[in-house]
Design a protein around this nucleic acid. Sequence first.
RNA 1: GGCCUGUUGGUGAAGUGGUUAACACACAAGGUUCUCAACCUUGCAUUCAUGGGUUCAAACCCCAUACAGGCUACCA
Length: 553
Amino acid sequence: MTNKEMADILFPNIDKTPEDYEKMYPERNIKEGAIVSRYAPSPTGFVHMGALFASFIERKMARQTDGIFYLRIEDTDGKRSIENGVSMIIQDLSNYGITFDEGMVSETEWKGQYGPYIQSARREIYHTYIKRLVEEGLAYPCFCKEEELEEIRKKQEKNHERIGYYGKYAFYREFSKEEAISRIKKGDPYVIRLKSPGNFEKKIHFKDLIKGELELPENDLDIVILKGDGLPTYHFAHAVDDHLMRTTHVIRGDEWLSSVPIHIQLFSILGFKVPKYAHISPLMKEEDGKRRKLSKRKDPEMAVSFYHEQGIPIQAILLYLITVANSNFEAWYEQNKNASIDDFSLDFKKISSSGSLFDMEKLLNISKNYLSRLKASEVYDLALSYASQYDLKLCELLKKYKEYAIAIFNIEREQKKPRKDLSKMSEVKEQIWYMFDELFESEPLQYEWGIIDSKDEILKISSYYFENYYNPSDTKEEWFSKLKDLSEYFGYAKEVKMYKENPELYKGHVGDVSMVLRVLLTTKSMTPDLYDIMNLLGKERMESRMERFQKNV
RNA sequence: GGCCUGUUGGUGAAGUGGUUAACACACAAGGUUCUCAACCUUGCAUUCAUGGGUUCAAACCCCAUACAGGCUACCA
């Protein structure tokens, strides 16, 4: 029996040839240097930070070279796939502005000329290439059962030999074709293995765009390329798909690094041009003093939805990720404050070859700075969209008092050094609730008095202020100078300095007196600019807050 | 066990043979302000995992060791 005859028996329904597919999926018409990259996840659940990081880099590289970025779903392991897995990925990523030029757009549909973009729909293509390999005597059926493989492994362990299906252990490599066919006809389960031409003693050299020059042993394992269920393994699908989809750069996690010899071998056997590789180190997490790779199973808080629930702006997360990817971004951004991430040129060489700890502090700091640069109306939009999902009461208020809310967000904002006290939207309510009567009046109040905490003194100072000093049309300077006069009137120092120099002469200082008004009106000892708050509240509401204090405390 | 990768302050890191190891976060002290945040100033690795070697000279080159991570599946 010839190889050709065996191939026909193995794949009776395959009538296309590799050449047909080469024609169907021609070289892309893109400009020199353009990168074609892909994000190729398995549909196993939510997207987590590590995956977002990788897809962000993949997309950025394609974008900045006017290339193509596509989404390919790797669902060759049916056991791990979950329902709506594809939509979940698309949704999670689109929340972060990660969109695709080509690829899956729903569970079953795709856009682009190089599809299908889901591996379970590419069976025929894989079979065509494997059929050719069988014809050429480069692949063969293997009938090893799990137990037999286990036995081989044990024997190798005992003999201190390398583990794996290779050389003399590759029993079915030399199995007779006639016998193989008769077993297949009998219905025996089998897989197709590659007849590896590699020699483990020899080294291959290749250059990884991130890790640099590497030397790895050739692959001599007869790896499985087609599983018992008729679907290919990752390695084989990677070679066929990335070739036919004309991927120029395979950017992926570095858990694949040691498989590169297999992949290069596959590309060469199939007659494909080897793509460029860039292996990204994983984001790490520190736990019990040890660091480890972020894990989807162990770290559900690393789901990107977690950040959404906290109301950390998408832009802030992207700024953080690009900072982790290329640490020179920060300095560049400082110089180009109005530029966008798109204007920065990400460099493979500057991506760290060791894994970085995910740093929440740094993320929040970036977020805080980002938010401080926004206009009040932009902060309002973010807060509203957050509240609409996570705080309906606040959402209602923001909608009802839109202009007022924007004015609140504008306190100490449009100035050379804008206020920086907000790093995520989940903090908004805590920071502004007292500006809304609905919230102020509905809850029991906890006044955070300073050194002046006697009810008598508080009422004396505040009523005197409203009767004799308060004027809604005062400028900030006038307002403050009146506070100083008020302080003096009640025996408090006009200036903090004066008080510090001669504390025995005063009951306190102007700061203590302002504190009375601040706490009376807001209950809080720490607030943004009191002048702005008073202007926003207006005389009537301030008086009613004073009355409430008088009656209830 | 085998193969591979990584290791610079509390954190992210710059730096690849030549003066005091950038910068940012965090932290601390002082200043400033009506409070807070912010802001300003200053401090924060005599040393680049450890031990050897090469060199006039090493965080940078070489070797060994330790530790961490990955791969070694009909999982990706």
